[in-house]
Write a protein that binds this DNA or RNA. Structure first.
Length: 269
DNA sequence: AGTGCGGCCTGTCCGC
DNA sequence: TGCGGACAGGCCGCAC
């Protein structure tokens, strides 16, 4: 599933194929994504040149001459470089066809993702406007200050994109383990020193995963799926009943909200 | 304003 | 073997 590192990997993977390329056509086979694919993208994007591919949180920003594609991969999405004549698979919802004979193909079985179009600065788009800082830019003092007075669980607080972006369920669990913090604790009850550890832990798990995303970069065009490198290095996520890698106590799974939360009852407090 | 939760979707897995 | 149901997940948008 596309977490932040995979979105960044996608960005790096598609950039050399499409920056500087003119768009010749946009083919929409299924417009019912999270929000309908706007007709303007089909009308306006062709004949424009792609100038850059940026990322904000888990949104990819494909900037053209007079407008920007805002794409989100949701839970199950991918954006791959292929040739337009390659027959679309099931759930290949949209192609951005390029003058160099390639295309960007958006694939998303669950359709939690989106492909939108804006002619404004994408940063003022309602979806991006209120987002917190990127994890690499979020210093612990900011996170600590923001947590004061919050009764919400620290895990929920971390996963709130207004606090900071890019910390999904997997990384929230992993970072809280590294920082030895019980995910059920109220965000406002945790000390400044522990937020320092937490901020470091977040960057560490994201960098680790980004390093592994690099391995899928090589055969990017060949459309090979995620081989599951993540799983072997996970410390708590999806390890209910298995021994803690630090103290061998059984990892516990609980539900907070509707989300699975994994933690070591001995290491995290 | 902060917080919790429903809903959107389909593939996968489990039990009958 | 086939079928139904539970579950997973990001994150918007609503209700309290």
């Amino acid at each position: 599933m596309p977490e932040l590192p995979e979105v960044e990997t996608t960005r790096r993977g598609i950039t050399p194929w499409c920056v500087g390329q003119k768009v010749t056509r946009v083919d929409v086979r299924e417009r019912r994504l999270r929000w309908p694919v706007p007709a303007e993208i089909v009308e306006s994007l062709p004949r424009q040149t792609i100038r850059s591919v940026d990322r904000r949180a888990k949104y990819l920003l494909i900037r053209a001459d007079r407008g920007t594609v805002i794409a989100h991969l949701g839970m199950s999405g991918s954006l791959r470089v292929t040739r337009p004549k390659v027959p679309p698979r099931k759930h290949d919802h949209l192609d951005i066809v390029l003058a160099n004979g390639m295309c960007l193909r958006f694939h998303d079985p669950r359709r939690f993702g989106c492909v939108l179009w804006t002619t404004d600065d994408p940063c003022v788009h309602p979806l991006l406007r209120d987002l917190g800082p990127e994890p690499w830019d979020a210093d612990s003092e900011y996170i600590y200050r923001r947590s004061r007075g919050r009764n919400q669980s620290v895990k929920g607080f971390l996963m709130d994109s207004h606090t900071l972006v890019g910390v999904g369920n997997i990384y929230a669990n992993e970072a809280l383990f590294l920082a030895s913090i019980d995910p059920r604790r109220a965000a406002g009850s945790i000390s400044r020193a522990r937020y320092q550890r937490l901020a470091t832990a977040i960057v560490r798990v994201l960098d680790e995963a980004l390093g592994m995303g690099g391995t899928t970069l090589r055969d990017f065009v060949s459309a090979s799926g995620e081989p599951g490198y993540f799983r072997q290095v996970l410390r708590v996520y999806d390890r209910d009943g298995e021994p803690c890698r630090r103290c061998s106590t059984k990892i516990r799974r609980i539900l907070t909200g509707q989300r699975s939360t994994y933690f070591c009852p001995r290491c995290q407090h």
